[in-house]
Each structure stands twice: as structure tokens, then as C-alpha cells.
Write a protein that binds this DNA or RNA. Structure first.
Lengths: 348, 348
DNA sequence: TTGAAAGCGCTACCAA
DNA sequence: TTGGTAGCGCTTTCAA
């Protein structure tokens, strides 16, 4: 069902006034009877210049009266630089964990007097995207490494970006890297399941597009953890719907698996329910572990074991950015920032 | 536990080259041996002017060689306008529904050649925020009405915004409004519970800050639906944690309630589990209904009834924006765009 | 204490 | 077919 917009008649009172043109500092100067320079001094509290209190007041009042707002583009054009930190807007719905991280980061960068802008990257990819971002002349760019090859980094730097930081599994030549290596998540899960005596281990790989960047490393992490053991690892493609889960559950017994790392808690809940409906006992016949430590996992019966993920604090990242901006010549830093630890509950 | 960033030594190979200055169109012109005007013509494919193919190639190669990227601020300063549509970045984690809506919207606006920018609004509020946005001279602004009084709308319009659209429960004088009136969600739930024979109805109100904009109207909607009936409505503050839910459940019997609208599915799941743990039968002793129609609600037993919410299509909104931009003098439009319908499952 | 003016990078008008 | 140049709004140096 698609909802259709229905217009509601407005009160006719709100007829918009004739759109005057946007007031500039020259307008303010004229109204206050001073020069544009003086306006600039007053409104920016330039300390190097002393302006009489009377003039200040006149300027302020004029600005107020006209509703003057400075023009950011003109300002940064003149200044030759901006304080804009650019991030691509997330394209997949992002969990509470990452949301919180972004928020902290914005706040922390705000404290350092940067302005965070999330840029909608639709359609264009790779170097196209880098070009589009470069046009904005941001002072720093934070982006998933996958969206940004070495080329892209070069373009951004040539366009004056003093810091480029990649987030994600891999770093990129020339850029700082926050390695969020989801290997460790899988590794944790695999180790845990093995320690619980499981040997035939399935790993859910979501079929939804855009999740590969996380799901691949998680799978690899499990493989890594179980290399040189007697355990086997089986890839289990799964779409995020009940029917798909039911089908997977129906094939469970014949698969001979005894445990599954379900990519994350959402898929884990989906699968666990399907298994239970199929009569497969959890954890006896099938151990199930998710990831992300969602509140909801605790509400299931059995309570869902999970891999808890720790992201770096927004403050730390903000400081990295600031450091990089202040000293753009410095060696790119690489940080491993993704912590993973098992929260053992009842499903494993 | 806070995760601490640990630096990993880099290969010394990646010493960054001396940061040359950013190439401008003048540099391209110089290298190609033409004027800046010609560069502009070529790179913008200006159709009003005919440039020889040889010159075109020289210019393109020069631009390529220098890694030239045009300067968006300079361009829009010169043009006197931009195609930037500004939205505040969401500050609370936002569900898959709204995420999808934002994505569609970005895509649709992209198709119409607008650039969507989400602006981190941290700390500053009300008119402060409007000022900050106005500095960017966006052609249109989409914002939750709550963040934007009539003052804010006026500021933005004076700064040249040709369309201001508020999203949320209330419209704002002078702006277009997409009324996302969560009343209707509550109304739906209330009506449904009443029809199922319930008379003493609780309504969960999350204690988490930032959710009031949704929770108040939802509560009011329930009240509205049950006005002039023999049913009572009781407000139930609840934090998003197990302990809080357990406490609420412990008080359930003595409260005399026989149904609850739990704000959304997440709170509903939390509360339903707590009620069951307390021995309260769902739906016999307590009917529970959520909202948002999350996949996970179907996995519980009993399956969770819910209010499904329909947002407008991103395309519709994009077209509204485009229309408003093209004809800024037009009467502001007001649309009711939030559809709500009950999905009846087993918990009510 | 204030003003005049240059110039940031770009496009578009007019002239050659 | 191409070039010269004015000017978008702002800050800042230099002069008055």
C-alpha cells in the first residue's frame, strides 16, 4: 500500500511577502552608516581593531533589523579554507551502536569548532564520489574505506583536504585509517562456539545488499578462529524474512550443523525462532550466537548469546582528526579500533 | 568498558608529498594555453559557445593532469544560488522505516539534480540552528518542525531558501508542512484495543529524552480515540531497560489495566516479556500492541500486534520540494502524510 | 577609529 | 572561436 499525499487547504492569511533580496554586509554597512570593513570587524569581534561602542551598537542593530546572516561560501572562499568535516551519509539503516558513535563524533568535532556535514552519496561511486566531495573543499573527510580508493584519497588531498580518515576493514594508502575489522567479531564467535564444544559451525551471510562489507570479514574471522582445528565452517546465505529463515531451519537437521553464528542479533533472533518452530532445540541441538548486543536479545528464551562490539569513542576520533588537520604532513596513523567480546547467555 | 585506540606503526613508504596548493581554473588555463573563460566553457559544456575540438582536448588534459576539481563555493557564490537541500542529521537512532524514507528522498532529489546535505546540529537549538543553516544558503530546508519556529523559517527565507518544509506533528507559519501526525498512530491503537473489548488501557511513554515529539502525540491519539467512551487511559512511563520493564510488570495486576499500547514494537517486546515473566498472560490478562511493524515482532509468542506506519514516498516529497523551489511565492502546502493501520496478530 | 580596495575562484557578458 | 573582465560576499591589509 502506498500512502498518497492529500493537500489540505491553508488559511489564506499566510501569503508570503514579496521576496526581497538577501541582505549582505554592504546593506548592513549602508544602514548603519559605516563601511563594510567595520561591519566585519564588529560582527566577528575582531580583537585587533578597536571600534567604539556606539558604532558597535549601530552595526548590531542594523544587522538585526535586516536579518543579516553571513554567507558561509563567501567567507570560506575568502579565508581559503573551511572547518567542514565531510562524511557520506549512511545508506543502509544503521544500528543504535553506530548511530551513537556518529552522534558522539559530531558532538566532539563540534566542540573543536568543526562543522560536520553528511553528504548524500546516491548513485555516484568511487572516484565520482570523491570528486563530488572534493568540490566542497572540506578540511577533512571521514569515509568508509570501501567508498574511497587511493585515487579518491589523492583527489581529496589535492583539493585541500588536510585529513582523510577511512573507517572500515581496510586502510587506504595515504589516508589515516580507523580499522574496524569485523574479523575480530567472527573470531570471537568462532572461538566461543568451539570452546563450547561445537564442531560443525554455520555462519549466516545476509543476502541483503550493502552488508557484504561487514558479513565477509565476520565470516573470515570465524574461519580464521577455526583454522587448524577439527571444526568445519559452513556459509549460510539468509534473507531477512521469516520464510527464508523457515527454509533454512527446515534444512537444519540434514545439514548436520551444531552451531551457528548468525551475523548479528537480528538475524540470530529470526533464525532462532525458525529453528524452535522446527523443533530444533536451542542450544542443545543448535547453539546460536548473534552480534551487537541488542537489548532485544535478552528478551528471548533462551536468552541470546552475542558478540558485543566496542567502537572507539567519538572524542578519540575527533582528536585524531584535529591532530591530522593541524599537522597534515604527518605520517598517516592506523588504529585498530573495533573491540569484540562474547556476552555469554543461554543460547550457546 | 571503553575501548582505547592503539596506534599501529605504518610503513614509512607513505610519506606525504609536499602539499602543493590547490589547482584552480587559472592553473588549468595556463597549462592549456587558453583563457580561464575557455576553461569554464569546456568543463561546463556550455552550449552557447562553440569551442574547437582541439582546444577542448587540451583543456581536458590539462585539468586531468593537474587533478583539477572546481570549487563549489566559488561557483555558487558566482551563480547566486545553489542546489543544496539541507536537512538536520537525525540525533536519535532512527528505525529502518525512517532510514529508508530518507534514502528514497535523497535519491529522488538527486534525480532532480539537488544535493542533499545532512547537517550535524549539535548543541545549538532553535534560532541558533536556523542561523547556522542559513549561512549555507541552501535552496531548500527540510526539518522537523520542532527544531524550527516561525522565526527560524523567516531567517531561512530571508537567507534565500526558496522552500522550507517542516516534517512532524505541527506545521509552522510560512513553511510547507508534511504533517506526520503521530496522533493517528495512537488513535489506531486505541480504537483497536477498545474494539477488542479492552477498557482500562495503559500507554507507555518512553523516558528516553528526544522521544517526546512522538510519544506525546501517540498518547494524545489514544485519549482522543477513547474520549466519550467508558474506557480509561493511563500513562505508563518506561525506560528502555529490562529492570524498568520488570518493575512495571510487577505493578501490573494491582494497576487493574487490561491492555497497553507500548509506544512502539521495541518497548512492546520489552514489556511483553516482562509481563510473561511475571505470570501475566498475553493477551488474556493484558493485550499488548506496539507500532512500526518491525520484523522481530512476528517472532515473539504470541505474535505482536502492531500499528503499521506509512510514510510518504521520497519521490512525492522530492516533487513537493522541487515545486516549491520553482515557485517560491506559492501558498505553502500542508499535507497529511502519515498513514497508520493496525496489523492484528496474537497479542491483542 | 574607520574606510578604501584587493582578491579568494568562478561564470557570463561583451568584444575581438 | 577565444579572451578580457566584472562581480558574487566576504575579510584583511594598508592608509587616512
Amino acid at each position: 500500500m502506498r500512502y498518497v499525499m492529500v493537500q489540505i487547504p491553508n488559511t489564506p492569511s499566510s501569503a508570503s511577502p514579496a521576496p526581497r533580496s538577501v541582505p549582505t554586509s554592504a546593506d548592513v554597512a549602508r544602514l548603519a552608516g559605516v563601511s563594510r570593513a567595520t561591519v566585519s570587524y564588529v560582527l566577528n569581534n575582531t580583537s585587533a581593531v578597536r571600534i567604539s561602542e556606539a558604532t558597535r551598537r549601530r552595526v548590531r542593530e542594523a544587522a538585526e533589523e535586516l536579518g543579516y546572516v553571513p554567507h558561509a561560501a563567501a567567507r570560506s572562499l575568502r579565508a581559503g579554507h573551511s572547518r567542514m568535516v565531510l562524511m557520506p551519509a549512511p545508506t543502509v539503516p544503521v544500528g543504535p551502536l553506530y548511530s551513537q558513535f556518529i552522534n558522539d563524533l559530531q558532538w566532539a568535532l563540534g566542540r573543536l569548532d568543526y562543522t560536520v556535514v553528511q553528504f548524500g552519496t546516491v548513485g555516484l561511486r568511487g572516484d565520482e564520489a570523491a570528486r563530488a566531495w572534493a568540490e566542497l573543499r572540506p578540511v577533512a573527510v571521514l569515509a568508509p574505506g570501501a567508498e574511497l580508493g587511493p585515487q579518491g584519497v589523492a583527489v581529496l588531498k589535492r583539493a585541500g583536504a588536510r585529513a582523510v580518515v577511512t573507517l572500515g576493514p581496510d586502510g587506504v594508502e595515504g589516508a589515516h585509517a580507523l580499522l574496524m575489522d569485523h574479523d575480530s567479531v567472527g573470531h570471537c564467535a568462532g572461538t566461543h562456539l568451539y570452546a563450547r564444544g561445537r564442531r560443525r559451525i554455520g555462519v549466516v551471510v545476509p543476502e541483503e545488499p550493502g552488508l557484504e562489507v561487514f558479513s565477509r570479514p565476520r565470516l573470515d574471522g570465524v574461519r580464521q578462529a577455526l583454522r587448524d582445528t577439527d571444526a568445519t565452517v559452513t556459509e549460510l546465505p539468509l534473507a531477512h524474512e521469516e520464510r527464508a529463515a523457515a527454509e533454512l531451519a527446515a534444512r537444519w537437521r540434514q545439514s548436520g550443523l551444531d552451531a551457528v553464528f548468525a551475523y548479528n542479533d537480528e538475524y540470530a533472533m529470526l533464525l532462532m525462532r525458525a529453528l524452535q518452530d522446527e523443533g530444533v532445540r536451542v542450544p542443545e541441538d543448535a547453539a546460536v550466537i548473534g552480534a551487537d548486543d541488542l537489548m532485544l536479545g535478552r528478551l528471548l528464551r533462551p536468552r541470546l548469546s552475542t558478540v558485543r562490539i566496542d567502537l572507539p569513542s567519538g572524542r578519540d576520533l575527533a582528536e585524531l582528526v584535529d591532530r591530522a588537520v593541524r599537522d597534515p604532513g604527518a605520517e598517516p596513523e592506523t588504529h585498530k579500533v573495533l573491540g569484540a567480546s562474547v556476552v555469554h547467555r543461554d543460547s550457546t
